[in-house]
Computed example of a mutant assay.
Amino acid sequence: MKTFAATVFLAFTATSALAGSHSGASTFQNTCSNIAFQYGSDGSAQIAAVCLKANGMPNQTSIAMPPIGNNNGMLEMGGNAATFQMSCGNIMLEAEVDGVTLYANCRMSSGEFMETSIPVSGINNSDGTLTN
């Protein structure tokens, strides 16, 4: 019986750790409005929004974009910080109930631009503040 209980505990612990990872779909869009891409003062990529606090009051907030880059015209996850904004234009975020998608026209190695998109994962509203 002790072996069974330990196995269940380990399985539960592993499941809880995975549930806390930041790779899931974003949920902030369900309690935030005016969701938009913006440049930080250092040229970084950010998400800005007005998010509701637990008491129902709105709060202006922003957060660094996940590490998304431009790979020959295609948006993809990778690196330590977002870099796509240095070679992409017409950048916008589209929020839907089940997630948020980043759209952009990104430069290919040929110099042409290609329309591309990628889901923005792991961003949530924590009492009116965007978190990951």
Rank of each mutant, 00 (worst) to 15 (best):
V100A: 06
N55C: 06
I118M: 05
I91M: 01
T13C: 07
F37T: 12
T83H: 12
M108R: 13
S62L: 06
M57F: 09
I35F: 07
L75E: 12
A45I: 13
P66A: 14
T27R: 14
I47K: 06
G69D: 12
S26E: 00
S26W: 00
I63D: 00
A81F: 15
G40F: 09
V97F: 00
A6P: 00
N71V: 15
F84G: 03
T101P: 00
R107Y: 05
H22Q: 08
T3W: 07
S33P: 10
P58K: 00
G128I: 15
L18G: 09
F37M: 04
S109T: 14
I118Q: 04
L102E: 01
L52V: 14
A82N: 04
Q60M: 02
T101K: 01
N30A: 08
Q46I: 02
T131Y: 06
A64C: 04
C32L: 04
E112H: 12
G73A: 04
P58C: 02
M1V: 11
Q85G: 10
M114T: 12
T83P: 09
V100F: 04
A45V: 13
G78C: 00
A17K: 08
A49I: 05
L130V: 15
Y103M: 02
A45Y: 15
F9W: 08
A19N: 08
M74A: 14
G56F: 07
H22T: 13
T83A: 10
T13P: 02
P119Y: 03
T129G: 03
H22S: 10
L18S: 07
Q85S: 10
M1T: 14
G89S: 11
L52H: 13
M77P: 01
A104H: 00
N80Y: 10
A25Y: 03
V50S: 13
N71H: 15
T15Q: 15
S21W: 09
G122W: 04
G69C: 10
F9G: 06
M57P: 01
T131A: 12
T3I: 11
D127V: 09
L130T: 15
A19F: 05
A19C: 07
G43M: 02
V50C: 05
N90E: 03
I68P: 03
A25C: 03
V50W: 04
T61K: 12
I68H: 07
S33M: 11
A19R: 10
V8F: 03
A95W: 00
A25V: 06
F4Q: 14
N55A: 12
M108T: 13
T15W: 14
Y39G: 02
I123N: 01
T83V: 13
F12T: 15
F37D: 02
T31C: 02
M108P: 00
Q38G: 06
A17Q: 10
S26I: 02
L130P: 11
G24K: 10
L18V: 12
N55I: 10
G99D: 01
G69Y: 14
A54I: 14
C88A: 07
I63N: 01
V120L: 11
A11W: 03
L18C: 11
F84E: 06
L18D: 07
V97L: 03
L52Q: 15
N71A: 15
Q38P: 00
